[in-house]
Design a protein around this nucleic acid. Structure first.
Lengths: 413, 413
DNA sequence: ACAGAGTTGCCATGGCAACAACCG
DNA sequence: CGGTTGTTGCCATGGCAACTCTGT
């Protein structure tokens, strides 16, 4: 359906720039760009279809209120949720925040308002991205596993659009182009759209950083990476998943390709991370084993009637695979037990420090999970820089759980 | 014009809660609320009109694209800007981020979409808040100063709505009510809507914190405060003003009431802050003296034809008054001159430290400007906590500007 | 019924890049 | 004309509170 016009560089490049540290008000502003040579990279077009777990998708269509959510709630919740996203030519993505409440809105550059914001149609369970503005969502396949539910997003046409839109200014087709194409290619090679699954943004970004490191590419920051990936895998939605108080932002509607090397790495590392977990944490995932209607164990996807057990388990593991994250692997630190506070330091300060330390540990675990061992030192430097000697005073953070004392030592000892 | 129905507490309270530090994953979650007694606080209704500086206001009305911006650009900029805001009963505020691109959207719970999102009308230069949903913008008065351009937002009816909407759940009219009423009252007493001026959010929030401190009230956090103030002064827009790289978020469309004590404090402190500034910085504000078309010295407000000099100067001072902020008062620190870096510390690290330090200084200056001297110690603790001895190593940050070395010492010496 | 947990809306802030205006 | 600066759109993350769901 898509012609194979490749992202043939000249004249259309994304202007995502190499991350220059120009944040201070220093007026010099040197733009140091690595002169990667102009390799015109053929953007691969077809994504293989395999191991597609039928996460059920549904849509609701009202007269002038359309909810195109993968996760329709069946309640009287004031429904600000919606999370519509326009399928327009690129730039305007509607995130959770800012989407309207209860009534329409959303809109692309072609004024689709009259139709209710998003046009819909159902084809045989396949999720197609026509390049224009319509958005097709396949309905749920309720048979046994491994059906083809999605795939083949990010056709070259789409990418072309993405590039054009991201760029939006004309004649600058320099080294940025190839640099970007490389990023695009990597993303296309390793990820694919898939309904019902989500990836933590940090995981995805860490993968990206690792990729950049390996290939000596300048990474863009997380925000720009967000723009990039949304321009490729259109229709990504935002979710915040995780335990209470530890929610992390996820890209919902994307997963690691089953044949991606990232997949293998992640699995290995997951196993390692699993082994580190105290028993209590492991049981966290157990209740999801008792299979019932809901396929992926998450709120989302409303009523699902005829799923098989096998299917559910697969979807589950799929979900876990992408979902397991440092924030979950780490045990909760529990309360701090301190006899006497030395100075004017309040209990809040202690908790703050604990929180920071936990974040640090999560970061460490995260890079380890992603095999980015070289980043460990950087993380340590970042965390401890402002405390060359000891953390502020003599108080040590003692954790109530026995196994988890001085957690990162497991990794560095 | 408004009936004097007071926010008489029972049955309608805002559920903004006292800020409990439940951020860690500690499961206890004690909600400690100060049992302020149920003083039914009469919400004052009429705001005095005085010293209204005619910041010029304008509106543009298209067929189905309405730009109700205080700052219409006259260009071909893709105009995602718009910054529409719904005037609905409360909760749904449309910030810069997320508002549609180029085509309508925006929407309240009463489906005003057909009208183009925001209805407009012009009355004789007065900005009126009818409690329903329409938003009236006065046009610019092009005569001498002190005309009545705005005022009298936040009528009791509006507040009632705000309360109802913020609350949205019914029967909990407890101590929260009076606590909130106190906040409301304070906000109503000290601020008013005004077109063409803006306040840094930090300033406003600091004022609020100070207020809470003085009255032994539990402050809400900045986000919740944002909800609160937007529910009262509807139509606030978001701006990010400041020098490049130092932009701060502002509430645009609000100012300190001319008779507010905050005003006096701020002026005094500004003077002090001004005196601290090296000469070069003071000149920063000078170019605005050369009066030309633009009234308030900011981008925004497009074509203004017949303003008098007096008017401009007044608007200018008005603007400065609200706008002068620590981020501007502080001189730029300039480049760091370091002979040798000791460890693996990179130049980026130094710049990072410098940036942090500057933020620290700005914070200090900010609290001093707002006479919150008791917060200074807290700030210091916060900043130096992770560095009990010296900042990381022997390197000292030398600033290129002569007067500004060790800036905060002026305040603590 | 109540408490705890997950999810999400609304608000906050911040970085990067694009754009416009301005200045030399 | 190019470089600099202010402003803003789009993306990111995070906190609080409301809501739902689930387990006791």
């Amino acid at each position: 359906m898509q012609t194979s016009e490749t992202g043939s560089d000249t004249g259309s490049t994304v202007t995502l720039q190499t991350s220059v540290a120009s944040q201070a008000a220093v007026p010099t502003q040197v733009v140091q760009q690595v002169p990667v040579q102009q390799q015109v990279q053929q953007v691969q077009t077809v994504q293989q279809v395999q191991h597609v777990y039928p996460a059920q998708v549904q849509y609701v269509e009202g007269s002038d209120t359309v909810y195109t959510n993968g996760a329709i709630r069946t309640t009287t919740y004031p429904y600000t949720e919606t999370q519509m996203y326009s399928q327009n030519t690129g730039g305007n993505y509607f995130d959770t925040q800012g989407s309207s409440a209860q009534v329409t809105t959303v809109v692309s550059s072609h004024s689709m308002v009259g139709t209710g914001g998003i046009q819909m149609g159902v084809t045989g369970g396949q999720l197609i991205s026509s390049s224009g503005g319509t958005y097709l969502i396949g309905n749920s396949m309720e048979n046994s596993g491994h059906s083809v539910t999605h795939t083949t997003r990010a056709s070259p046409a789409t990418i072309e659009m993405a590039i054009e839109t991201l760029q939006k200014s004309d004649g600058l087709s320099t080294h940025r182009s190839s640099l970007l194409n490389s990023h695009l290619q990597w993303l296309l090679d390793n990820y694919e759209t898939a309904e019902g699954v989500s990836l933590p943004r940090s995981t995805l970004y860490n993968h990206y950083l690792r990729h950049c490191q390996e290939h000596k590419l300048d990474p863009v920051n997380a925000a720009s990476f967000g723009k990039l990936i949304r321009s490729i895998f259109m229709g990504l939605r935002t979710r915040r998943l995780g335990t209470r108080g530890n929610s992390k932002y996820h890209y919902y509607g994307i997963r690691v390709k089953p044949d991606s090397p990232l997949n293998r790495l992640q699995e290995d590392m997951q196993y390692m991370a699993m082994r580190q977990q105290p028993m209590q944490q492991k049981q966290r995932y157990k209740p999801m084993q008792k299979v019932d209607g809901v396929a992926d164990g998450f709120t989302g996807s409303g009523q699902q009637t005829g799923t098989s057990v096998e299917q559910t388990v697969i979807a589950q593991s799929q979900h876990h695979q992408q979902f397991l994250d440092a924030s979950r692997a780490l045990p909760e630190f529990g309360e701090v037990e301190i006899s006497s506070l030395p100075d004017g330091t309040t209990f809040e300060d202690i908790k703050s420090l604990q929180s920071l330390y936990r974040e640090h540990c999560e970061a460490i675990l995260d890079v380890v999970v992603n095999l980015q061992f070289s980043l460990i030192e950087k993380l340590w430097q970042t965390f401890w820089r402002y405390s060359p000697s000891t953390p502020t005073d003599g108080t040590t953070i003692t954790e109530s759980r026995s196994e988890s004392t001085s957690f990162p030592i497991h990794f560095h000892g």
